[in-house]
Amino acid sequence: MAATHGIAWTFGDHINTEAILGSGKEENWGSAMDGVLAYYDPEFARKVKTGDFIVAGRNFGTSSGRPAGEILRQKGVKAVICESSSMIFYRNTWNIGLPVLQCPGILGKVKKGDEIEVDIEAGTVKNMKTGEVMQAEETPWILLEIYRQGGMLGWIKGRRTEYKTLEQA
């Protein structure tokens, strides 16, 4: 997949999943969509555009295991790039089909509103204003494989014959 350009929305450390997808909203996505990250940036839910990126600090997506990445994907976010990510959020979100790159030092190199270029396969992030390129940590091979199939559901369908629990065509 080729590199994509977009605008960065920046967030600090320890952004929790409840602040992305509010408690009790899993069965009520309409109202959840309006409140995404409102506690940390009230503008975000209204102004985020398809193709934008989230650039965040340490431990992004901490706390509850709810699939909060799905609501970011539906908001049009193309990738989350953070200093580090909570394990559950990281695994969930790649499986949803939305990449999360752990890129130590990123928050010092990208400001809110900066245009960045992200290459998921190469794990690189370029700040178009400064020209500086940062290298993210290596993504586990299995997640890249899942991502290439569009996420977990595509990955399962593509390997259908490996499951005794599925009817075969």
Binding site: S63, N92, T165, L166
Partner: peptide
């Protein structure tokens, strides 16, 4: 649930994963 780590109290390796439990149910 993220608090699945709970069952470590009896010496079980218990780890949270949410979205992927669909795949675990099948495999």
């Amino acid at each position: 649930d993220s608090h699945t780590t709970a069952y470590g109290c009896i010496g079980c390796l218990a780890s949270p994963m949410n979205f992927e439990t669909t795949e675990v149910m099948l495999s």
